[in-house]
Each structure stands twice: as C-alpha cells, then as structure tokens.
Design a protein around this nucleic acid. Structure first.
Length: 574
RNA sequence: GGCCCCGUAGCUCAGCUGGAUAGAGCAACUGCCUUCUAAGCAGUAGGUCGUACGUUCGAAUCGUACCGGGGUCGCCA
C-alpha cells in the first residue's frame, strides 16, 4: 500500500476502534484530517494533524491523544521515529527501506491503482459556441479546461458525458442565414457594409460560396440552406476542436429540445408553484430612462429567490429567451439522471448562474442533483504590451485554428489549464511564436526525454537491457540521498494529487505537479555535475546505476501518465 | 448603485480546502558546456499575503466592513 492509504487506514482504524468515536460518520472521519508531506524535512517525512482535529471531538488534549496514537504507530517497524510537536502535530519519520519499497509499490500500482471514490455519473457541458462562425481563441480555454477536467474525472473512475449544446435556434441563427443569403445574392460585391442585421467577416462569405457550389439546387430554399449551413459550420468547429484534442461524445441541439411540449411542461410546473406571471420587468440600471421601454411578457419570480429582478422567460412576441431555453436544456439533463451536472462557462455569464440554479431547484425539489458551474476568466491576447482587441460583432478576432497552427496543441493545452480558472491568462504571442525555452511544456517533456536517454546510456555502458529488469525484485538499497527521498515522496503523492485535482475540477494542480517533479528531477540530474559520485549512471558501479535508474524510470512513467491525462504529447526524443 | 470574480516578491502565478520558518517561474546579479544532450544545474537578492476588525490553540486560507482592479446588469449570446 502507498504511504497515504496505509496511514489513513491505520489511523482511522485506531480512532474508531480504540477511542470509539461512534457518533462520527465515515465521511467526516475520513475527510477531517490531513496526511501531508511537509516542505520542511525537520517536520518528518509525513505529518498529520489528526490529534488536533479529534481532540476537540473527544475532549482530550492533542498531546495526550497524540501519545496514544504514536504508541500504536510505534508498533510498525517501517517507522523509525515519531514526534508530537507544537500544538499537536504528529511527525512521522520512515526508514529508508520503507521509501525504497514504496517506489516498488508505486511501479507495481501505476497502471492499476484503484482510486477510492464513489463513482458518479457526470455530465460536463463545455464550449457550446454558437454555430455562427469560427471559434476564436477565447473559446479555447473553456474547451481545453472542460476536456481536461473530463479526462481527470475519467481517470479516477467516474462515468463522464462530454456534452456540447448547439445553439441552433433563435435570433442569431436567423441573422446567420440572412447573412448567408445576402452573400449568395451578392457574390460579386466585395464591399460589405457593416450593419447590425448581418454577421461580418470573410468566413461566412466562404460558407456561402460552398453552399452554392455543393448545393446549387437548394439555394432558394431557406430551410434547406439553414440545415446545410449549420452542418458546415459545426463541421468546422468540430474539426478545430479535434485539432486541440477536444472530443465531445454528446451533441444536443437546442432546436430539437426547445419544442412546444417542453416549453409548456416547464411553464406548467412553474405555474403550479406560483413562480411565473405576465408583467413588466424592472428597469435595469444600465439602461437609460429614455431608452427603457416597458413591455409585458412572461416572467419568472426570481426576485423572490434572492435575485435582483424577475427574469423574462418569453420575449414579448412569445419566443423563448435564452433563460427559458436553458431551463429546458438543463431540465433535460436532470431528467437523464446524472449525479452531477458540471458546466464550464465564461465569466461573462456569471449573472445567469443564480437565476438558473433558482429555477432548477424549484423545479426539482424532491430530486437530488448536484449542479456546479465553473466560470473561466478571460484570455488576453497580447502582442508585446498591447492587448489584441477582438470583437466578434465587427468580425475582428483571432481564430483558434490560426493560433493552433502557430503554437501547436501541446503548448495551447498546457497554457490554458496551467492556472486556476478564476485567474486571467495573458497569452503573449511574441513569446509563444518564438517557441521560447521558457515554455513549461518543453521543460516537462525534456525531463522525460532525459530519463529515456539514461536508459540508453545504461544499456550501452553495461551491455544490459533495462527494460528486462524486474523492478520489484531489484535492489534499491542505494537510494539514500535526500534528493532521492524527496523525489520518491513526490512520486508516491501522485495519486493524491490526481484525486484532489478531480474533486476540485482543477487541472492546474496536475500541470503544477508535473512542473515541480520535472524541476526536482533536473536538479537531481545536476548533482552529477557538481559531484560525479552522484551521477545517475556510474560506469564503475552497476548496482548504484541500476537503483538510480529505477528512480529515473519511475519519474518518466509518472510524467508520461500525467501528460497522457492532459492529452499532451510525451515525445521520446526532442 | 446591485451581484459575481480577483488583490501573495519588480512581473506572472502556486500555496494540498484552517497548520509549523509563505513557495516557484520570469526579470536582475554570480558561477557551471573537453560533462549521463546547457531545451539544463547551483547560488544571491527580493514579502507588514490590499487595509482593519472578528472567529480559535493556530488565518494568505473562514466571517464582516472598507480600499483597489475586472466582469456583468432588457428580449443579445
């Protein structure tokens, strides 16, 4: 067993059997205390706050409780020293041979490790860009984040549906088709007056051209044109997503779902709960009195539930608002019986979170469902110090496909997830175009490549085949440097890191971990330059070389596994 | 004005869900390429964690108020 599972099991067992904390439920027991690797090695290999946490509950001083716990742990021969210090931390020092065996344990489990989770059926919705044009760079963040979160959730064992909601109904589609038809009828006209009635940009001209080429016969039938246009644009979007390795396995069409039957259904349910009425909305602060026109429409009593204002469900002409169509879509998801609904939205949609949650809670009082919305901050595209201004309305934006062409999927993916979603990302074109060595992706990949080259050198030096070595039988006795222990501990923490990344929907924990691991490995490698006895491959000592190479190999395998989860390439050579 | 997000080293960010002496990467300065690939390593310097109260054994982390930055506020998406 890896140290974390081993200690958790041991400590929980002791707490519940010896000290009898019966009133605590399992979850509280398991989640309430930490087992961590302190940065300061004086605080032990591993440290836990269990005595302080439980002392409150069972009314015993942390030191007295700590004493009882350490008495129990002392029985284990892998532990060479135990201390209760400060306000009641228990610091645990393991023997070197324990950590050596942990490394073997890790290699044994690396592909078969079973995460201790309650398996959930999760629907994660992301991208859902409108099919009215190409995706721009701003879409990339949600796309990569959603895809990576899915990948991590799948890794720990959840059942994940990756869904794309196609907004193929409503005003913007009418405008799109109007634009296409305009282009079809004005093929020779290169000048295109900007107008709010049309979508600007050359892309839609291209689409119109293709429609004419391929579907000449349909060019007068608007419904058919609409069908073909949406088809074409979605194909482009999917192909762009494919290029950054984002693959949804479910596409839901707004048009198909926003049918009368569903609208009536929702309306009826809300009416039964006395949550809707025909009336007038409050004037929003941002609208001037002169511009404000009151119109009667169907409203949701959002104010009653803590919102600023009641919200429109239907437009005055009876068409669905975005809010209504969203309620229908999410109700559809709830009816598909997921344990968790997770949405990745841009931060500019933050105002809609409250009203949608309110509506769904009211509609599903008796049902258990977990609905979470992860908001992503903006991506600023910089050219030197200048922010590249983008405006979809003016048709001025940097497309995703152009950026991928320049930087590649690896760099793009890593950049987009390497910081917390709530932080803004400055995507500096100048740096990225130059494929700078400052790039953290290369740094991590290079650590892997170095490990691979070590294997080659080992094989050549000792005329041996490392791949045929049985690691679980090999002697790791020589792994005794502090730097080696630090690396082993970090490796053994890999699964905990993945779990915390999954539980929090935070892929940046994985990129940070990989970067740290790579840094520690490069430092380990560097030791050999200062002190040649610390080289990983020592020509005159096959045993030490073999031990150290097992460690390097383990590092390479963890890096590879991590990068695979992130869908970032792990080249053998660079 | 309401609501949401953010304030941690000069810059960009971590900080394992409340733990011990707050950490990285850039940038700056000093060393290391007849070397297990320098796409790398070692070292130096840099902090009242926006401010003030509060909660408790213990706060960058939780609460309240304020300050600063951003987002958003019709039937757009």
């Amino acid at each position: 067993m890896l140290y974390h599972d081993f200690l958790k099991y041991k400590l929980l067992d002791f707490i519940s059997s010896e000290i009898l904390v019966k009133e605590l439920n399992e979850k509280l027991k398991a989640d309430s205390f930490n087992i961590e690797i302190p940065d300061n090695k004086e605080f032990g290999d591993v440290s836990t706050n269990i005595a302080m946490v439980f002392s409150k509950i069972i009314d015993m001083s942390p030191h007295v409780l700590g004493k009882k716990i350490t008495e129990e742990l002392k029985k284990n021969e892998s532990i060479k020293k135990l201390e209760i210090v400060g306000p009641g931390f228990i610091n645990i020092f393991f023997t070197d041979s324990f950590w050596q065996s942990q490394l073997k344990e890790l290699m044994k489990k690396i592909d078969t490790y079973k995460y201790k989770i309650k398996k959930k059926k999760i629907c994660i919705e992301f991208v859902s860009a409108n099919p009215t044009g190409l995706m721009h760079i701003g879409h990339a963040r949600g796309a990569v984040l959603g895809d990576t979160i899915s990948s991590i959730l799948e890794e720990v064992g959840h059942d994940v549906e990756k869904e794309y909601y196609i907004n193929d109904a409503g005003e913007q589609i009418k405008k799109l088709i109007k634009t296409i038809i305009f282009h079809i009828n004005n093929r020779t006209d290169n000048k295109f007056e900007m107008s709010d009635d049309f979508y600007p940009g050359d892309y839609l001209k291209e689409v119109a051209k293709k429609i004419l080429e391929i579907h000449k016969d349909y060019s007068k039938d608007e419904n058919l044109i609409e069908e073909k246009v949406l088809d074409l644009i979605m194909k482009d979007i999917k192909s762009d997503l494919f290029k950054i390795r984002v693959d949804h396995n479910s596409f839901v069409s707004e048009k198909q779902i926003s049918v009368k039957e569903n609208v009536n259904n929702i309306t009826k349910k809300l009416e039964e709960k006395n949550l809707i009425y025909f009336g007038y909305q409050d004037k929003p602060k941002s609208i001037s009195v002169e511009k404000w026109q009151q119109k009667k429409q169907l409203l949701f009593k959002s104010k009653k539930l803590g919102d600023d204002s009641d919200r429109a469900l239907l437009k005055p002409d009876g068409q669905l608002t975005y809010f209504m169509s969203d309620i229908i879509y999410h109700q559809n998801k709830i009816d598909r019986h997921y344990d968790t609904l997770l949405n990745i939205w841009g931060i500019d949609h933050s105002g809609y979170v409250k009203r949608l949650k309110n509506a769904l809670e009211e509609l599903n009082k008796k049902k258990k469902f977990n609905f979470e919305i992860k908001l992503t901050s903006l991506v600023n595209l910089l050219e030197g110090d200048q922010i590249v201004k983008m405006s979809k309305r003016e048709g001025k934006y940097v497309t995703l496909r152009d950026v991928v062409k320049i930087v590649g999927a690896d760099v793009l993916r890593f950049m987009m997830i390497s910081r917390n979603a709530d932080k803004r990302i400055d995507f500096d074109f100048e740096i990225i175009k130059s494929k700078s060595k400052d790039n953290p992706v290369f740094y991590v990949q290079y650590a892997y490549v170095r490990c691979m080259s070590l294997i080659k050198i080992y094989n050549k030096t000792f005329d041996d085949d490392f791949n045929k070595i049985n690691i679980s039988n090999s002697n790791l006795f020589y792994l005794e440097l502090d730097e080696e222990k630090v690396l082993i501990k970090k490796l053994c923490n890999y699964f905990n890191m993945i779990i915390s990344s999954a539980n929090n929907y935070e892929p940046h924990r994985v990129t940070n971990y990989l970067f740290d691991l790579a840094r520690d490995f490069h430092a380990y490698w560097g030791l050999g330059k200062i002190d040649s006895s610390k080289k990983i491959i020592l020509e005159n000592n096959i045993d030490i070389s073999k031990s150290r190479l097992v460690l390097a190999y383990a590092i390479s395998q963890v890096i590879k596994k991590g990068l695979n989860i992130l869908k970032i390439d792990c080249p053998e050579k660079m």
